[in-house]
């Protein structure tokens, strides 16, 4: 069954890992855009009946409300759709393996390498992202902890508000050049 088939990816690599844009950043005025280090990521799909067992297995209650996230111990789970969550582990945890421990029926797929993440921080962070994102990013409409897939220019991104003045932007690997370029343009304009 799905849970049994979930493969644990242990990355005891024998060759060098070369993340896209590894370590780059830029600053302009009141904004900093930094490429974040690799992280463990899982695309998790399940029906309602499996939510409780997955929450237990992951150690974080899967958020049930659209646009919200839940975090615990370096692991954040984002609500992306009514049967879709995105699990991010930045502290070396193996979310895929943990999903495999859940009894409820689900699909867990390792997407750690699919994404590149950026931290956009500072007083101009909102304006930077508004260069390409049509969403209302005010705290009232997109609060701390809120997350959502949306668009940024011609790329799809996953947007997460870390704090009042910091966003995490994730995009697919091959779009990272474009997203970084547009974030940099947005940052420069936010500083203008």
């Amino acid at each position: 069954m799905a849970k049994a088939a979930a493969k644990t990816v242990q990355e005891a690599a024998g060759v060098e890992r070369r993340p896209a844009l590894g370590g780059q950043d830029m600053s302009a005025g009141g904004v900093k855009v930094a490429v974040l280090p690799p992280a463990n990521r899982v695309s998790l799909r399940a029906r309602q009946e499996a939510v409780a067992s997955l929450s237990r297995a992951l150690g974080v209650a899967l958020p049930q409300k659209p646009k919200t996230s839940a975090a615990k111990g370096g692991r954040t789970v984002f609500w992306l759709g009514p049967d879709e969550w995105f699990v991010l582990d930045e502290q070396g945890g193996d979310a895929l393996a943990d999903c495999g421990k859940a009894k409820g029926l689900h699909s867990a797929v390792d997407v750690s390498h699919r994404h590149v993440a950026f931290a956009v921080s500072g007083p101009g962070a909102e304006a930077t992202i508004a260069a390409g994102c049509p969403r209302d990013l005010s705290l009232a409409a997109f609060a701390v902890g809120d997350c959502s897939r949306t668009v940024f220019g011609k790329a799809e991104i996953l947007l997460y508000r870390v704090s009042e003045q910091e966003f995490r932007v994730e995009c697919w690997r091959s779009f990272s050049d474009y997203v970084f370029g547009l974030l940099a343009e947005g940052a420069r304009d936010a500083a203008a």
């Binding site: 659209p66 992306l80 759709g81 009514p82 879709e84 897939r149 949306t150 668009v151 799809e156």
Partner: peptide, 9 residues
């Protein structure tokens, strides 16, 4: 319609 760049539903 599909919320393709959102919840994908």
């Amino acid at each position: 319609w599909r919320h393709v760049h959102g919840c994908a539903r």
